[in-house]
Amino acid sequence: MGEGLSPAEAEALWLSLRISSVAILTALPLAFFTALLLARRRFWGASLVETAVYLPLVLPPVAVGYLLLVVFGGRGLFGAWLFTTFGIRFVFSWTGAALASGLITFPLQVRAIRQALEAADSGLIAAARTLGAGPIDRLLNITLPLALPGIVSGAITAFAASLGEFGAIITFVSNIPGETQTLPLAIYAALQAPGGEVAAARLCALSIVLAIIFVSLGDLAAKRIWR
C-alpha cells in the first residue's frame, strides 16, 4: 500500500469502523443484561431465551438479513410503523447496517460477558455480602469490575467480527458506496468490476491488518485481569 489509501478506500474503512462501533456499543448494554439473566437466574424458559440469543450465530447471515427485511423493511411489520411514527428508516441506511452487524455479533458478546460473569469468584461475592453489600451494590462494585476484562475483550472480538459482516448487510441494506458499503462489501463490488482484482487485493490486505489489530487488542484486554 505504497501510496496510502484512496478516498473511496478511506470512506469504506471509516464506514466500517463507524458501523461496527455503533453496532457493538448499542448492543452492549442489552447483551450485558441478557448475559446476567442467563448467568444468574434459572428461570422458566431460560433455555428458550438462550436458543434465541445464539440463533444469529448459526443461521446463514443472508437469512438474518432477510428476516430483518421482513421485520424492519419499508413495508415490514415493524419498519412501516417506525417510519410513519418516528421517521426512522433502516433500509438503505448505515443505521440498518449497524443493526444487522449488532444482531449477528450479539451472541458473541452475550457469550463473552456470560463467561466473564460466571468466572467472577463467588467467594468474593459472598465476602462482599457479609460486609454489608446488597445485590445491586455487589453487581456494580464486585461482579462488574471482576468481569470487566472479559466484557471488554468480548466487545473487541465482536467488533472485529462485525467488521467482516457481509451477508446480512448486503441483504438488508444493499451495497451503497458511502452509506452501507463497508470493507467486505467494497471487496465484493471491486471483484464484480472488470480489472478490479488489484483494488480487491488492497482492500483485502486492509481487512487483514484491521483483523490482526483488533484480535490482538481483544487478547490484550483479556489478559489485563486483576490478580
Partner: peptide, 20 residues
C-alpha cells in the same frame, strides 16, 4: 436475616481480598 444485614463479619481462610 440475609448476610448483608447480619452484622457478622467473616474472615475467610483464603482472605478473599477484592483484587480490583
Amino acid at each position: 436475616v440475609p448476610p448483608e444485614a447480619r452484622r457478622i463479619a467473616v474472615v475467610f481462610q483464603e482472605a478473599r481480598l477484592f483484587p480490583h
